[in-house]
Every structure is written in C-alpha cells, then in structure tokens.
Design a protein around this nucleic acid. Sequence first.
DNA 1: TATTATCCTATCATTTTACTAGGGTTTTCA
DNA 2: TGAAAACCCTAGTAAAATGATAGGATAATA
Lengths: 135, 135
Amino acid sequence: MLSKKTKYGLKALTYLARAEGKEPVQIAEIAKHENISQKFLESILLTLRRNGFLGSKKGKGGGYYLIKEPKEIHMTTVMRVLEGPIAMVPCVSLNFYEKCDDCPDEDSCSVHKLMLQVRDSALEVYRNNTLADLL
Amino acid sequence: MLSKKTKYGLKALTYLARAEGKEPVQIAEIAKHENISQKFLESILLTLRRNGFLGSKKGKGGGYYLIKEPKEIHMTTVMRVLEGPIAMVPCVSLNFYEKCDDCPDEDSCSVHKLMLQVRDSALEVYRNNTLADLL
DNA sequence: TATTATCCTATCATTTTACTAGGGTTTTCA
DNA sequence: TGAAAACCCTAGTAAAATGATAGGATAATA
C-alpha cells in the first residue's frame, strides 16, 4: 500500500506545480485544498525541501515553491524519497540492496525471479513520468 | 514491501511444485528447507488450502500437495490471496475498489493517474507468470 | 491405541504508520 | 521596533499491521 505520506507528498507537489510562477504557497492553503492534516503535511514538505524538491520562504507572505521545472521532477526520485525502495524485496533493490537472511541462492529463488520483473515494470512507469505528466 | 507471509507462501508453493507427483510434503520439511518458522508457515499453508491452491492429508504420511498444475496457478490470484490488492491505492483497485475520503475527483487526481499505471504494469507481470514460470 | 501430522483459535511482541504537541526561529510589515 | 505570520524541528503517541508463538483438537495411519 502507498503510504499517506507519499500520497500527500505527491498531491502537494502537484498543487505547487499548478501554482508555479506565482508567490510561495502556504502549508495551510495546501492542507485545506487537499484535505490533509496540516501538521503532518508540514513534516512532509520539510523532507521534500531537504531533498531538493522544494524551496521555502519564512515569515509573512512565505511558503513553499518548486525549485525545479515539473518536467525535471522524476517520479523515481520522488518515490524513493517519500516511499522508500521501489523494489518489494531488498534483494532486488537497485538503491537499497540487501541480501535475504533465509535465501541461500538468489538465482534459484522464485520470489527473486518474480519481484525482479515487478521492480522493472514499476521502474519503467516511474521513469516515464515526471510531475509535469501528472498535471 | 512484500510481506513475509507472501514471500514464504510463494516459496512453499515453489517447493511443492518441485516435489510434484510425489507423496504429500510435510510442513516441517518445507519449513526446514526454506528457513521458515514452522508455526507461521502452518498458518500460511492453511490459507492456501482454503483458497483452493493446496490439498492436504492428515496423519502419518500426510502433508500438503498442489491440487492444480503449476502452469494453472497464476500469480495474480496468488498475490491477491496472500498479499491482498495489487493496486497501491484502493481507488485504482479492480477487486478491492474504494473511493478516497479526501479526493473529490479521481479523474483530476495525480496520484490516481500514476497509480493506475503502476497497477497495470504490475498486473501485466503477474498475468504473465504462473508458478511453472518461477521454477 | 499410540503416533503422526494437520487443523484451529487466541494471544503477543515488535514495528510501522499517521498524526499531534509544543515550542523555536526567521521574516515581514504596520 | 515589535507583533504577527509562517516555516523549522524534535519528540511523543495511539492505532494498526506484521510476524510469530502457544496450546490443544481432530483425523489418519500402522
């Protein structure tokens, strides 16, 4: 299941992309429009800022804004930051690889075989989508 | 993340497929070979039996066995039984559809748009794989 | 009838998730 | 200059899911 964190993060990014070129957008405004708990959204926007997706401005008239063009924001990176590994098992993860404790041989493991395909198909989707594609 | 339940279930099915044609296989044997907690595996095999994948025999010489040919066991059904919905959000689920509380309009929802593609790509993989393909 | 092995329910510890609390800090603007 | 606006940051917490265990009931076999 997609976590709410990721879901809300994607919605916030979309909202900001639609408001692009204008003034910074306040957390409260996004939270209200997208029906998200404001405090929770605050923490999500914070991680998006720390990971280079958003800029922010403090004080009155402040808020958040995209620091890249929507077409430069790839879903692979968004998903990895918000949701974590794209692979469903660590032993097929490109960026978070880990060997299974139990499994002695990956090559003969049926789970490995299947999840490799699932990972590749998900990656293809994420690679083919930027924020601009979701507007 | 793939749950251990699904992972172990897949491994058990694979094990049984490789032992096909022979006598029923005992839980203990599968648990040992695949490094799975026996009691946990017991409950998994039980749900696989209840969902029509396995047959069982009690008493001495008993155990579990496949009741279909490996090539008749599709990953879509296995995944749905063990892991639940294939979709990452209920609003794009074919078999477990649910409307989102927050989202007023699915057609304009960026999350919906993206997750629809992810679901389709995962489905394609699962549809193209039977248990026989994983051996 | 003793042994083997599945069947079944309940419980439990751990982890993750989704969220809340409660301030601190910076900027703006009257 | 000072009050209000808005982001910054850490910590905590309730609920749910997960992974596993306990303990016996039932059925088949020899």
